[in-house]
Amino acid sequence: MQIGNCFRCYPTPAQAQTLLQWIGCQRDIYNAKVREDQYFRTFARKSLQHTGQCAPIDQQYSHFKTDLTPWLSNVPGSLLRNGVVR
Score class of each variant (00 low, 15 high):
1 M>K: 14
4 G>K: 10
5 N>K: 12
6 C>R: 11
7 F>V: 11
9 C>I: 15
9 C>H: 09
12 T>R: 11
12 T>H: 07
12 T>D: 03
13 P>I: 04
13 P>Y: 09
13 P>V: 09
14 A>V: 07
15 Q>S: 06
15 Q>H: 04
16 A>G: 08
17 Q>D: 13
18 T>C: 01
19 L>P: 04
19 L>A: 15
21 Q>F: 04
22 W>M: 09
24 G>M: 08
25 C>K: 00
26 Q>E: 11
28 D>G: 00
29 I>E: 01
31 N>S: 10
31 N>Q: 10
31 N>H: 13
32 A>R: 15
34 V>P: 00
34 V>I: 01
35 R>E: 10
37 D>T: 08
37 D>L: 08
38 Q>L: 05
38 Q>R: 09
38 Q>N: 10
40 F>R: 02
41 R>H: 10
41 R>E: 11
42 T>C: 12
42 T>K: 15
43 F>M: 12
44 A>V: 04
44 A>D: 07
46 K>H: 14
46 K>D: 13
46 K>C: 05
47 S>T: 14
49 Q>E: 13
50 H>W: 05
50 H>A: 08
51 T>P: 02
51 T>V: 11
51 T>S: 12
51 T>L: 15
53 Q>E: 15
55 A>C: 08
57 I>E: 05
57 I>M: 03
57 I>Y: 08
57 I>S: 11
59 Q>S: 13
60 Q>G: 14
61 Y>P: 01
62 S>N: 04
62 S>V: 06
64 F>S: 00
65 K>I: 14
67 D>M: 06
68 L>Y: 03
68 L>V: 03
69 T>Q: 07
69 T>W: 00
69 T>Y: 03
70 P>M: 01
72 L>K: 02
74 N>H: 12
74 N>L: 12
75 V>T: 12
77 G>E: 02
77 G>H: 05
77 G>L: 03
78 S>T: 14
78 S>C: 10
79 L>D: 02
80 L>G: 05
82 N>I: 05
82 N>S: 13
82 N>D: 06
85 V>I: 15
85 V>P: 01
85 V>W: 08
